[in-house]
């Protein structure tokens, strides 16, 4: 199976190992990966600031880059939500657009829903706190959100659970936003940081050793806060755990 790998710009530039881990996991599962290097940014920062004129050319660039792949896979719920839910504004009626929406998957979704993989082997003897990134949660429904009534599920937890020795933190607020929110983190700096600190405190109380998420952007925000506060808590993207990365700051 061949996929076009879509790596968010900030992951490409700041967190290359998250992308490498994504590649490792997918290749181990027999997926043939192509990373088209003309890709840059999906345009979400501009779109979320209301700057549609500035977003449009990036949406077109994205379509051109990825339209010929059978699947597009990305280790970020937020960027996939942009393509799936917000590109219509720019690309409605363009040849290949409907197909693009249907074949663009977030990494965990792709493993669970498309590859339908067997339980990942490996061990991860740590207490893991899952941060439910809002876009993955409420825009892509990677898990059941606490506001809605119905069967509870989590594709992330489903992927992690088979790992030997893994345990999970039980949070007081299972899916409250961390406050990153893209440009919100700058526009509403005070609220954004207050939200992030509250999330971290919840994880501390629950005894989280490793915080993980399907979105590096939330984790970038919380890593920044943790470092400034001098709090030791390991932060890993879910792809890094599945790829078998070690916990780095073990004393």
């Amino acid at each position: 199976m061949r996929i076009g790998l879509f790596i968010p710009c900030y992951v490409d530039q700041f967190y290359p190992d998250v992308a490498v881990a994504t590649v490792e996991v997918l290749e181990r599962l027999g997926v043939e990966i192509d990373y088209p290097t003309q890709q840059t940014c999906c345009g979400q920062p501009m779109a979320n600031t209301g700057c549609r004129h500035e977003t449009r050319p990036l949406a077109f660039k994205f379509l051109k880059t990825f339209k010929d792949y059978p699947y597009v896979v990305c280790p970020s719920g937020s960027c996939v939500a942009m393509v799936r839910h917000h590109y219509r504004e720019y690309l409605d009626g363009q040849p290949g657009f409907e197909e693009l929406v249907g074949k663009t998957y977030e990494f965990c979704e792709f493993l669970v829903d498309v590859l339908k993989i067997d339980p990942v082997e490996g061990s991860f003897p740590h207490k893991v706190g899952i941060h439910q990134s809002c876009h993955a949660l409420r825009h892509l429904r990677l898990a059941s959100s606490s506001e809605r009534v119905g069967a509870s599920f989590s594709k992330m937890r489903q992927l992690l659970e088979p790992l030997e020795g893994i345990t999970f933190s039980e949070l007081e607020r299972t899916d409250e936003c961390c406050g990153f929110g893209g440009t919100f983190s700058i526009n509403e700096e005070a609220v954004s940081c207050s939200m992030g600190l509250d999330r971290i405190a919840d994880h501390q109380r629950a005894g989280t050793e490793v915080m993980t998420a399907p979105d590096m952007s939330c984790l970038m925000h919380m890593t920044g806060l943790l470092q400034r506060q001098g709090i030791r808590m390991e932060i890993m993207h879910i792809a890094q755990i599945l790829a078998g990365r070690e916990v780095s700051n073990e004393k």
Binding site: C134, H135, R138, S145, E147, C177, G181, T183, F184
Partner: peptide, 12 residues
């Protein structure tokens, strides 16, 4: 409109 992290909890 910018006093919002787009977490979508309100919509749910």
């Amino acid at each position: 409109p910018f006093a919002c992290s787009l977490c979508a909890s309100c919509s749910d």
